[in-house]
């Protein structure tokens, strides 16, 4: 059952901001409170808002569940792949091979309290992005599948 036009327009307006805020939390996970899990949960909240405002059937027609499943698997594969990539270069598994290297995300920080610099922390931002993608897809697909179970009872 789709909700009224006011709710649908409100959710359309709110969704980009929730999306951007969630990705802000994910990308600044190594500087401010937050990280992949929290930011992914925030982005999934936006998806839940859209699912509540529109009906399950409309959202199910908008996006395939296989895409979300692919996204979740891709997050986990990226997570493990970022750990495995160090082994190719001769480091142990899950060694932070990008930290203090000077390349992508490779700047050093001054010890002690500092204003923060986004281009630091080695492969931790990659891990945050991977986990955020996984949590986003996973929570959204859980909501969609649970709604597909109660669909017959008239929701």
């Amino acid at each position: 059952m789709r909700m009224s036009k006011i709710v649908r327009t409100g959710s359309d307006l709110m969704y980009p901001f929730i999306f951007i805020f969630g990705w802000y939390v994910i990308m600044h996970g190594h500087l401010t409170p937050g990280g992949g899990f929290q930011g992914g949960a925030v982005v999934a909240t936006g998806a839940a808002l859209v699912i509540v405002a529109y009906s399950y059937q409309e959202v199910n027609a908008m996006i395939k569940k296989a895409i979300l499943m692919f996204q979740e698997s891709g997050g986990l594969v990226l997570f493990i792949g970022a750990g495995l990539a160090g082994m190719i270069l001769g480091f142990p598994f899950f060694y932070n091979w990008l930290a203090n290297s000077g390349s992508l995300f490779g700047m050093s920080v001054i010890p002690g309290p500092n204003p923060g610099e986004l281009n630091t922390a080695g492969f931790l931002p990659l891990m945050n992005i991977a986990v955020g993608t996984e949590v986003w897809g996973g929570l959204t697909i859980v909501i969609l599948y649970m709604l597909s179970g109660v669909e017959k009872e008239g929701i």
């Binding site: 409170p33 899990f37 920080v109 002690g112 309290p113 500092n114 204003p115």
Partner: peptide, 21 residues
């Protein structure tokens, strides 16, 4: 335990928070 604009360096233990996450 976050150094970004931290007012002091007396920080709580980070490991219990990580495990709670």
């Amino acid at each position: 335990p976050i150094y970004t604009n931290a007012p002091s360096t007396n920080m709580v233990l980070p490991t219990p928070q990580a495990l709670c996450l």
